[in-house]
Structures are given as structure tokens and as C-alpha cells.
Design a protein around this nucleic acid. Structure first.
Lengths: 341, 341
DNA sequence: GGAAGCTATACATACGTATTCAGCACGTTA
DNA sequence: TAACGTGCTGAATACGTATGTATAGCTTCC
């Protein structure tokens, strides 16, 4: 019994043809006759033959693999991944598989060379970048990717795609929907919890939607109701403390992330404010946690499934040399207990 | 300007040595002199050279890649991945990276050949299997893996590792801790929500711990307090309906998963039962959702970080030809609002 | 009936690396 | 001075596949 795994030569011998014919038969080349193909397939089946992807990749000069790269701000728990990205994972894997690609995952923190590691080593034909946090710090690296002609897509703000190809949610519309919902509930002083610095372009867009909703409703927007905050629970809590410090009153709150909204809700409840009676709250993302929060959190749902699939498809189009348009994915308002009685 | 990416021959030419010397220098072979190595490294740096992993893998006959395979029961939303496995992902990626491996992810549903696809195609040197649901149906495939000598590890019940190498939480201890906690609160009629069929060996172990706690406390265990259920929210709800149908009274509840516990809590609350006053509830897993539930859910925490790292390390040991022992990971009780006032 | 055309297959080769083996220069020992 | 190790490097080659080119066997048509 030979322990060596079978090669295309073994199949060829068994099927009574040459090795190139085996290769052609298996790859569906029409030059090979139906009869021969059937014999080859049978032989391959019998020996449990699988094409060696290393050899195949070497010969074809591509790997049929995509690399997924998380480049988040380091968290206290370094092994934590942003839950929204995690929720994209399923549809990404599925989209990859249906296009015949494999998916490789990695973290940024571990290698300074991530912008070259994967494509340059031919382990992947393209890269999906998922970043959360300060975008600006990654700018030089994204530019390096563009310069080197690496295929990549990025989750972010498509309106702001100077650093490469981006796909993202329609953040402006999300901000508008959230704010309009609160205004329709009769709320007049709606706090905005989120940074509008260029480091968080998505948040800025959400803020623009917030502004538009105010304008269309003829409602005066109060500058002091906006508090800088990142997307964590902790920063949501801190934002409430900041509003309190300012002595700024508010009857509603729109946070740029569910986690920040949950943190804010907890801080409010600790101060004896009732939700939604005293303060109506709307978040952004629609994480699983939003549904479990108390009260359940009204939020702007990003379609993680569509997002994952869109990223993969755009990347594959790019690899295939097609032009594809940056895409803005629709978001929807999900009303729950935090904004209605 | 040549767009072709550099090979070891280009580095060799630039450094004034031969190609094999480049290979040796880069792989740290001590036969090459320090001086030569420095020249090679400088040349490689200058040309942004990266070893072609396809060629390297072909030559070395391994890929330095591990494949992560989810084989869950198909869910309504096919792109959903069990959140507990998702929470392992971070530490797995990290453990892989620190051992110089890459991580590939895939779903089972898409290929019937998963048991051969990865190793046989040389895309991966080993496989991590994460299954949730009916184990028995996968038994023949696991056996096929063992037969073919494929390197793999499996998350599950190490006491029951007839199908290959397993790592898992100490489920018996978890069941014991949960139940003892409830008994110490003075509860006497503790419902057990979870299937004990051989399809779910982990759940059976949790049930054994539940039994031991009763015995040690000298408490009578009531058969009719046990309800079959899988690990979903829906099945948790259904279990409450079943207990109601049986007319079986209970003042505490231990569910084999957080999701089932949360479903049960909701069903109880809809029936006007107060938690924890009327019914104290303990779950299992410590998902993020447990902390956000209302009331926050007391649960047995599985250490997802340790689990991910342990799986990867065991697999790599196996690939390196070392013997390694199946490992039982400790679990800890996290007391929250669902079991104390 | 023979050249042209077509189909199906075989032959030869290249992809980029890692490793075996041979060779060379140099220094050491008897 | 000859024999011999030692330390480094180069030449040759193999890994398994995919593809350009050549060829054998058939048909077709004037």
C-alpha cells in the first residue's frame, strides 16, 4: 500500500491517458472527449485524487484565495473582533465558496507588512480590509496598496474612497432615519453621541443625516448636544457623563453604535432616567446585543449579510479585471422598546 | 520597469550569489555565512521580495495553513455561525499566527467532500472541526478522517473521543457548579433544559453534573423536571411550554445554553413569573448576550480564548508528530441577576 | 486518391522554491 | 608536502500542475 498521495500521473496511468489529458479533463477543457473525461473522472474518484493547490497555484500564478484582514485599534482583550464584522463572516465565507475561492483570516497587529504579505507571497489573490477605529493612521498603508496594484476592497464610506475601493452602508440615510424617527415621536432635543472627526468618516455621514433630519423638520439643532465618542460601551457611558457635565438637557439620544447606545442607556438608568419615557434611544448596527438589551434597543440595522457578499463580489470582480462601482448598502430602522412605550 | 514580481533568482543576481544561497539565507540555514546572509536580506528588502508560498508549499509538501471547518446543523439563516465559536476565532487567529500558520475558514454545507478537501488538496496541513448539533450524523465522516490519517482536532467532549482528538470544556463540572449554586440559593425543584441524547454528548455531561450536585446535597431529583431541548432560543421557549403542559412546578432552571436560557426567561416572563424571585435561571456558555439579557443571565462561562488557543496548539503538536493529551478546559460560574436579587 | 482540415491526445516545458550532492578554498596535521 | 577535514557556495534536480505546440488518426472534398 502506497501512502504517497496520488498525482495526476497516477490518474493518467489508471485511465490509460497522459497527464495533460487528466488536467484538461478535470478542468473541463472541451478539447477532451466525453468518453475520455468519464474515464479520467472515474479514476480520480477511485484514487481519491485531489488537485494539489500548491502546484496548481504555482503554475497558474494565482491561489483562488482571498485574505480577510482585521485592522482594528488594539483592544484591551487583543483577541476580540468587532461583532459587526463577525456577523459578516458567514456570508463572506458563503460568497467565497460559491465563487470557488477560499478565505484566509488574519489580524493586522501581528505583522507590519500586512499590506504586502498576502498578495506578494501569492497566498491570496486579493484582500478584504475591515477596519474600525482611526482610519487616518492606516492611510499610508492603503496608499501603498494602491501603488502596488494590489487587489483589495475596504469596508467604510464609499463617498470617501480616495484610498481605494470601498463598500459601506448608507450612513447618511441611517442618521436621517434615526433622527426622523425620534422627531416623529415628538422629541425636540436629540443628543448625538459620536465623533465627527475625519478619523471616523462613517460617523460624520451619520451626523450629516442627523442634521438633514433637523433641517427638514424645521427643528433647531443645538451644537452642545453633540458629544465625541468612539464605538464602545465605555465611550457611550462617558458621553452621558459629559452631557451631564455640560448641564445640557435632552429627551432623546442617537448613538453611532449599538455598544455606545447600550453604554449610554446603562449610564442613564443609573442616574434614574427612564427609557424611553425620559430619553428615547436609537443605536446603529443592529448587533445581537441590541435585541437583548433592556429595554431592547431601537437601532439602524446594517445588512451584514449583504455587506459580506458585496465585499467579496466586488473584490472578485476586481480580480477578474472588471470595473465595479463603489456600493452604498441600504440600512433600515428597527423600532424596539428603547424608543416606544 | 518590470511589473513581474521578484523571484529568488532576482535576489540572487542583486546580491551576487546563487539562488540556493538565497533560499538558505532566508530560511536561516546556518551553512550560509553572516556576511552573505546580510547581503541577501538587504537585496530581498530592496526588491520587496516575498517567498512564493505556492512554490514553497509545493517543494516542502506542506502549506503552513490550518483549515477551520464549521459543520453545524443548517440554520434558517444559513450564514449564521454559532456565536460561541465566533468568540473563539480571535484567539485561534492569534495562536495560528504565533506559530507561523495561516488560518482558512469554510463551511461544511457547501461540500460533501470536506473530510478530504483541505488536506488532500494540500491547502491545509490540518483541520479544526467545530460542530454544533447532532454529532452522530457526522460520525462516519470523522471516522473517514481518522482512517485517512488526516490531522484534525475537534471541539467537543474529550471523554468521548472515539472519533478522533477532542478538546472541550469540563461540562460535568459546569453542570455541577450551576446546580450547586441553585441549591445553595435554597431552590429545591430545579428544571434541566437540554437533550441528553448521544447526539449531544456535552449536554449529557452537563446533566451528569446536575445529578451529582443533587446527590451530594441529598436532594431528590425529579425525572419530570428534565426537558429535551437543543441550544436555541426557540427550543428554550418550547421547553417552558412543555413543563407547563406537564403541570410540573419548579423554582429554578438550568439550561444547557445561554440562548435556550434566554428563550426560557422570555417565556417565563410572558407568563408572569418573576426572575429570579419565582424562578432562578442559570445558562451555559457566557455569550455576550448573557450580559445584556434582562435580568442579566447567570451562566457557566466557557473560556473561549483558552479554547481557541488549545485547539490550535493541539493540532500543531499533532502535525509535528508529537503526542498530546485530550484536554478538559475549566469552566467558571458567573453570577448575575437571574439568580440573585 | 491525395491534400487539406479537424479532433483528440501526447510531448515538452515552465512556474519558483528547497535540497542533495559536488566542488572549491583554506587551514591543519603528520 | 601530501592527505584530510571544514566551511561555504554553486549546479542540478524534483515537487505536481497547466498549457503551447506537435502529431496521429479521421473525415472531407475536389
Amino acid at each position: 500500500m502506497t501512502q504517497r498521495r496520488p498525482t495526476s500521473f497516477d490518474i493518467a496511468a489508471l485511465a490509460g491517458v497522459s497527464q495533460p489529458t487528466v488536467s484538461r479533463a478535470l478542468s473541463g477543457n472541451p478539447a477532451v472527449s466525453a468518453d475520455t473525461r468519464a474515464r479520467v473522472l472515474a479514476a480520480a474518484e477511485q484514487l481519491h485524487y485531489k488537485v494539489d493547490k500548491n502546484a496548481s497555484g504555482l503554475r497558474r500564478q494565482h491561489s483562488r484565495t482571498l485574505a480577510l484582514l482585521f485592522f482594528e485599534d488594539p483592544t484591551p482583550d487583543e483577541t476580540l473582533i468587532n461583532p459587526f464584522y463577525l456577523s459578516m463572516l458567514g456570508s463572506m465565507v458563503r460568497a467565497c465558496a460559491s465563487h470557488g475561492y477560499d478565505l484566509l483570516i488574519s489580524f493586522q497587529q501581528l505583522s507590519d507588512d500586512w499590506h504586502v504579505d498576502y498578495e506578494d507571497s501569492r497566498k491570496a489573490d486579493g484582500i478584504i480590509l475591515l477596519g474600525y477605529g482611526d482610519y487616518l493612521q492606516y492611510r499610508p498603508r492603503l496608499e501603498a496598496l494602491v501603488r502596488r496594484g494590489t487587489h483589495f476592497v475596504c469596508w467604510g464610506n464609499p463617498n470617501n474612497s480616495e484610498y481605494g475601493f470601498m463598500i459601506g452602508s448608507d450612513n447618511e440615510s441611517g442618521g436621517y432615519q434615526a433622527t426622523t424617527h425620534l422627531i416623529e415621536l415628538g422629541r425636540q432635543r436629540i443628543a448625538f453621541i459620536g465623533s465627527v472627526s475625519p478619523a471616523y468618516p462613517e460617523f460624520l455621514d451619520r451626523y450629516l443625516g442627523y442634521n438633514r433630519a433637523h433641517e427638514e423638520a424645521g427643528l433647531l439643532r443645538i451644537e452642545r448636544l453633540r458629544v465625541d465618542a468612539g464605538p464602545s460601551e465605555e465611550e457611550g457611558r462617558a458621553a452621558i457623563a459629559e452631557l451631564e457635565r455640560r448641564g445640557q438637557d435632552f429627551d432623546a439620544l442617537f448613538a453611532v453604535s449599538d455598544l455606545a447606545a447600550i453604554g449610554a442607556m446603562k449610564a442613564l438608568q443609573e442616574r434614574g432616567r427612564r427609557i424611553p419615557e425620559d430619553v428615547a434611544v436609537v443605536g446603529f448596527d443592529d448587533l445581537a446585543a441590541a435585541g437583548y438589551a433592556s429595554p431592547p434597543l431601537t437601532t439602524i440595522a446594517q445588512d451584514a449579510r449583504a455587506a459580506g457578499a458585496a465585499l467579496i463580489e466586488a473584490l472578485i470582480e476586481q480580480i477578474d479585471g472588471q470595473e465595479s462601482e463603489p456600493r452604498l448598502l441600504p440600512v433600515t430602522l428597527k423600532v424596539r422598546g428603547s424608543s416606544q412605550v
